[in-house]
Design a protein around this nucleic acid. Structure first.
Lengths: 330, 330
DNA sequence: CTGAAAGCGCTTACAG
DNA sequence: CTGAAAGCGCTTACAG
């Protein structure tokens, strides 16, 4: 047997498809319908096991009630540097917004090669969870030309006007550095990997700025890689701001004897929904799930035609003490 | 400006829509096309920034190249009892299969009230990641009547012929129990919560069966809740099979002085992709990401019309030793 | 190698 | 309160 369409329901109920459609889409435009007709149509629909075709409806209305999520690579959905609960927090934020608006959520796969034009056809808007934007600027251009609402999370194109929600990365770097300065540290390094230059670059700039305000120079040798622990000794660093918790852990593994005896680690990291950063690290945090949730919510509002001025909304970070921070009496 | 459709491309290229369609869908049916025409169409398409309408294509072909994922409740995507990496492992398995076949993946939201008929219109098939199936049998019926391929993961309707991939829960309970028996334990309890009766029920049955084979009775008082540590003393239990790692941790927190001095804990849990169960627990594991990956792959094959006999494929568990297991010399 | 035409299943003005 | 009809944007036999 082939698919049961609205025409089948209408025929069985003895009404036109227009009427059948009106009955089955109760909420939309308020058109009065006789109780008798309504009952007949509803009975026919359930007898026949009618299920509307989302494709036909989407073609007609231009809306799918689904938004897409685009990560740098497909791995974005399970490999995140902060540890595994990053994925959970992300999912939580996205799904909650989706549920509140009765939207579905499609994870856009597609080639890792980001220059391939993605097949966005089936979504009403796109949430960008991409940490490599600075390395792949054409993504932002392609998206801007997609004709659909786009909202960036965590990372965003620096030079483009757009909707974006992200932690204030510069403020994160600054706050971490200021905290270490107040604890008496002077020789404070910054640990990051070379990738994710947008996010890590901003955090590093925050560190530099705070150091500069304190009148301390930051030679290039104070910016180290997670496997560059040798530089810590060479430069006599007493503290390190780590670009994320993964990096903090990698460094701690290398120099474990020194943490926190000789070396203070302060990591930049997301807070989980209970507001807790990793218990084993002193941290400056941003509210990941809240950012993602608010972002997905705003994207849906944009889809539904709400007028919202494009803006980059940055979240102020918070400091939470932890065992890897130590007062330094110089 | 309104949407650019294929007709616009065709007009600009000076060809019919049929021809334009053939050019732009290179891979499909092999129809020879002159190089000249091909070039003209491709140029027109890129000049105009043409993007095919997924809705129209889906309506015409009946395929969306997307599969849906249905959890018990929306929370399924971020709250899983085994800890947060459960989500990551799930995502990994699903996404990898999706990528291999160039499918997208839609997380189906919808009311928590599972009796509401979900809106499946936009997906070609459904992956069921639902741990409450035994409590909501109508879900399976609704799905069976959806006319789309359905594949169950982890939990499955006991009484229905269907496609399912899951750990062999009974074997898990048995293996854990046998391991404890061999270590010299006799008074072995089983710890679980009341919910998820399908999965936990099977695991519990495995424990019972292994005990029975060993000639040991299992009174109801030996089956305890995670907060029922008092029963451990009352019944002089020396070991506990825990239905999952979350439960194992809850129990350990209550009786920490005794683990593993007086009480051995053996937990049933998923292994991560590196094959590691939690390092702090002795465990009997199943390969979560592999199950999800294989399941998603099979679902896509079903969607594409491959004939596969419905079957419940159960994975044999593995034992990994850990610090919470102790020899018991009775 | 190319085109005219049908039709996938809906929704929504428009006309009663 | 209800129906006839157009049209969303594609793909695919079918006919040249």
């Amino acid at each position: 047997m082939s698919r049961i369409a609205l025409t089948d329901v209408a025929r069985q109920a003895g009404v036109s498809t227009s009427t059948a459609s009106r009955v089955l889409n109760k909420s939309q435009v308020t058109v009065p319908i006789s109780e008798h007709t309504r009952t007949r149509v509803e009975t026919a629909a359930s007898e026949l096991g009618y299920r509307p075709s989302a494709a036909a409806r989407a073609l007609r209305t231009g809306q799918t009630r689904t938004f897409g999520v685009l990560g740098n690579s497909p791995q974005a959905f399970w490999l995140w540097s902060e540890g595994n609960d990053f994925t959970s927090e992300m999912m939580r934020g996205m799904m909650q917004a989706a549920i509140e608006h009765s939207y579905h959520l499609t994870l856009l796969t597609g080639e890792t090669a980001a220059d391939r034009i993605p097949d966005f056809g089936m979504v009403d808007g796109i949430l960008v969870l991409n940490r490599d934007l600075s390395e792949t600027p054409h993504i932002a251009e392609t998206l801007a030309g997609s004709g659909k609402p786009v909202l960036y999370l965590l990372d965003y194109p620096e030079t483009q006007t757009c909707h974006a929600l992200a932690p204030d990365d510069i403020a994160m770097g600054q706050l971490a550095t200021q905290t270490l300065l107040q604890a008496g540290h002077q020789r404070i390094g910054f640990a990051r990997t070379a990738n994710w230059d947008g996010i890590f670059g901003r955090r590093e700039r925050g560190w530099q700025q705070a150091m500069q305000v304190a009148g301390i120079e930051t030679p290039a040798t104070w910016s180290i890689e997670p496997d560059g622990a040798a530089a810590i000794d060479e430069e006599n660093l007493t503290a390190l701001v780590c670009a994320n918790s993964h990096i903090a852990r990698a460094i701690r593994k290398q120099v474990s004897a020194k943490v926190p005896a000789d070396l203070s680690l302060l990591t930049l990291v997301h807070a989980d929904t209970q507001g807790h950063p990793p218990a084993d690290l002193a941290a400056v945090t941003f509210p990941l799930a809240e950012i993602v949730h608010t972002g997905a919510d705003r994207l849906i509002r944009l889809i539904q035609g709400e007028t919202i001025e494009p803006q980059k909304q940055l979240y102020t970070p918070q400091y939470t003490s932890g065992p890897t921070l130590k007062e330094h009496l110089s």
